[in-house]
């Protein structure tokens, strides 16, 4: 397999890998490193790529596992991942000035969700995968995915109502 062929396979989902990594690791730099790591692993095993049924789902699972490993090793070292990118840099967001503040609230609320729920919110509400795919990526059954998703959505909504009514948490 040549580099261009490989890139052709990888390009459609590399951003999704990155966003999933960022959802778990929070820091943009860490997420970039994780994405690079995952894609390089794929490249090294490129001989096997054709044997995988679904490279995209496989890569998402790999990303999830890689990020969990990263988080675990950070925890055991008693280190926190340093990140300074609370602010969303996207210009499209900056235009919606009145919404901007609420958007950072949503981000913070999602950050405080359990990792499992964060993953599912990311995969469903942002990447729009169907439940079957999510279940396979996370090695769960569909009902469990639905329950976790419902819980996550309700938490986000409740916390947002809370901040709306009282201004600041």
């Amino acid at each position: 397999m040549t580099q261009t062929e490989f890139l052709h396979i990888v390009t459609p989902f590399k951003d999704k890998v990155f966003r999933l990594a960022k959802r778990l690791l929070v820091s943009t730099e860490e997420a970039e490193d994780a994405t690079q790591e995952v894609l390089i692993k794929l490249w090294k095993n490129k001989a096997k790529i054709k044997a995988y049924k679904n490279v995209e789902a496989f890569s998402m699972t790999m990303t999830k596992n890689y990020c969990f490993d990263k988080l675990k090793s950070k925890q055991s070292q008693n280190l926190k991942i340093v990140h300074s990118n609370y602010e969303d840099k996207q210009t499209a967001l900056q235009k919606q000035v009145e919404l901007n503040d609420s958007l950072t609230w949503v981000e913070k609320i999602i950050e405080n969700l359990p990792e499992q729920q964060r993953l599912i919110i990311q995969l469903r509400d942002i990447e729009a995968y169907d439940f079957d795919e999510i279940a396979k990526m996370l090695d769960m059954n569909q009902t469990a995915v639905r329950v976790a998703l419902s819980r996550a959505r309700k938490t986000i909504r409740e916390k947002l109502t809370h901040t709306h009514n009282y201004g600041i948490k």
């Binding site: 580099q3 490989f6 890139l7 590399k14 951003d15 890998v17 990155f18 966003r19 960022k22 970039e32 994405t35 690079q36 894609l39 390089i40 490249w43 969303d88 996207q90 499209a92 967001l93 919606q96 919404l99 609420s102 958007l103 609230w105 949503v106 981000e107 509400d125 942002i126 990447e127 986000i156 909504r157 947002l160 109502t161 709306h164």
Partner: peptide, 24 residues
């Protein structure tokens, strides 16, 4: 109104891209 920032956030996050170069 509560749902507005939620969906706006989801929508905004669909657009983030990976820009780092891959050393292959």
């Amino acid at each position: 109104d509560v749902y507005k920032p939620m969906f706006a956030y989801f929508k905004a996050n669909e657009e983030e891209v990976f820009t780092k170069k891959l050393p292959l």
